[in-house]
Design a protein around this nucleic acid. Structure first.
Lengths: 339, 339
DNA sequence: TAAATTTAGGTTAACGATTTCCAAAAGAGA
DNA sequence: TCTCTTTTGGAAATCGTTAACCTAAATTTA
């Protein structure tokens, strides 16, 4: 049978109160002798407090939940690692779930987490449940939004500087002598990420004395089967393109396939810069220039801020932390050999 | 303030019992009219049952925990995805943690999970807490071990057929005309995985009429900084090596670096087969032959088995499920061009 | 029509901790 | 020695559910 605080009390011949006090480090009401008796009983019975009962009474579980929208992209593993490490450090446990970009699933999971009385939630939002997010914030529920900006939502947020990352990538391409740069992005009007990366792309063009007429953007459906075909088709129809800025890992995968199919040479025929550094980028053919995002750091910050706001008595004004990506230049974006 | 079952009862002018019955789909004691009244009150108050209280009373939380040993390798994301999807399907929530291959951390997390009254645990064990695992099994606690075999532990297990995977890889190398194949593996006496993959390597050599004197194994320290140097040094000292079987993703990364440093050509100078398919393998230079493990499936199976054994009244005899990897042949292991 | 049974719903005691009082014993002060 | 204060520890209420048991009304049976 399971051991309860009552069993410990009985064995040590004290009341549950005393055991509870000792468990929680409140020694002011016990002599050393009774304390030792209780400690011995705890060890002997291998007693572990029931966190459910404790949480029920104390209105605190020391559990936080994280809602991710995609488990496929390794970027999120890094984020999760940062969150997990921080939780461990600060004495929290972590529940995870995957909204899969579906608003209904996201809503269901948030409700689930709340029923389980998690102390706070970290979320990479689908951005299609604005009312729900707003309700959470209104009820003062500790919430940290990561990776995507939620307009008009007054809550702690940790995002990347996507404009800057994209700007660095495209500026580098242009400075290396490229003239016709196409940006590849997912079509998703809800997600700030893509919009910002395209903004950075445009800004880089303008600052390098290109005009609006030089903006070239290919929008792709996330999760679609014909991404590869779309890219092939686009590159065939626009054979003057001499560089590609891919705003996402998964798109890059298809892009590489497309370029192979078309039998173009990187970087001589076409240069590539891609969002999201991976462990494999340096071993690709040729090594891939990437925008590295501090995913671990984002996870770490998010967890720290969340837990701080859980512990804080009175709410502090929510802030937005913006993390800086950096450009790792490799051969895929080298200047073309003059012909 | 938070809404409780009592508030709903008051609003609907019934007792808490009635509300509880309706919540749990037990309609045999209520008329449709009261049922509607209660449902309306629930909606109106936006009431959500407190899972802590429910769990405390019912001795059931519908939460399972998973202990992973490493968040860095993308393989585990795939496993996690399988577990998460299955949990969602079967109405469970998931707590995750990372032992980081440290037995103490592993033990701490298992205790933590038990205090939180999880209904069961999935674990990729460090294999260095045998007493603890045994205690869990003895106490009939639902436990599923994944990826690594635990000798003499009578519990449900889902592992890969590592011998077969390694055999296929090495057999393929030998059949392609390679004569001097070295296997790269982590030195970890606790983990069945590496031992089995080396066994498969040896078996393939023997079956292809090679002898014990042809076994070439380079053991590496997991997490060490000088993996790269070790590999370079080994390949320099053994310049007759014409093929490498890498038993792990992360080792392959270093291997590719080493081969680049030594300026050898893949596959003409040296062929490579590596454990763990990744999304990048086909785009490497050259495309990498890999052993693909069904990680998603492993996660799925583990969760299904665990939840089944949680729901099962009387324990069924524990079984070991062995999943089959398959070899994806690409250019990195092509037969060398005759000189 | 009276007794037996079924139906609808309520009362209350758990589940396992924490915490607010309260009480007895010990020590201090005069 | 007697009173006052401090120290040590316990009793019981509480957190929000569930479930065993009970009761009164309605319905069926003979």
């Amino acid at each position: 049978m399971r051991v309860t605080i009552g069993d410990v009390a009985k064995m040590a011949k004290v009341s549950k109160t005393t055991v509870s006090r000792i468990l929680n480090g409140n020694y002011s009401h016990t002599t050393e002798e009774t304390r030792n008796r209780v400690l011995k009983a705890i060890k002997e019975l291998d007693y572990r407090p029931n966190a459910l009962a404790k949480g029920l009474k104390s209105m605190r579980t020391n559990v936080i939940g994280i809602v991710l929208s995609n488990f496929k992209n390794p970027f999120w593993t890094t984020v999760l690692e940062g969150v997990e490490d921080t939780c461990r450090e600060l004495g929290f446990n972590l529940m995870v779930c995957n909204s899969n970009e579906e608003p209904d699933v996201e809503e269901e999971y948030i409700r689930e987490f709340q029923m389980r009385q998690v102390d706070g939630i970290i979320i990479n939002p689908t951005v299609r449940n604005m009312e729900l997010y707003q309700k959470l914030v209104n009820s003062k529920f500790p919430l940290v939004v990561i990776n995507r900006r939620l307009p008009d939502l007054e809550t702690n947020t940790v995002v990347m500087d996507n404009i800057k990352g994209a700007y660095a990538a495209v500026d580098h391409l242009l400075k290396s002598g490229r003239k016709k740069v196409v940006a590849l992005a997912y079509r998703n009007p809800y997600v700030s990420t893509w919009k910002e990366r395209l903004e950075g792309y445009q800004l880089a063009l303008l600052r390098n004395r290109f005009g609006v007429e030089d903006f070239r953007i290919l929008e792709l459906e996330q999760g679609s089967e014909n991404t590869l075909d779309s890219i092939i088709h686009y590159l065939e129809a626009n054979s003057d393109i001499d560089a590609v800025f891919s705003t996402n890992n998964m798109i890059t995968l298809e892009l590489l396939g497309a370029i192979k199919t078309l039998d173009k040479q990187i970087p001589d025929d076409i240069a590539i810069v891609s969002y999201d550094e991976t462990i494999w980028a340096q071993h690709l053919n040729p090594p891939l220039t990437t925008v590295r995002q501090p995913g671990y750091h984002m996870g770490q910050m998010a967890a720290q801020i969340l837990i701080k706001s859980i512990n804080e008595e009175k709410k502090i004004a929510p802030a937005t932390v913006v993390l800086e990506p950096d450009l790792i230049i490799r051969e895929s974006s080298r200047s073309p050999i003059k012909k």
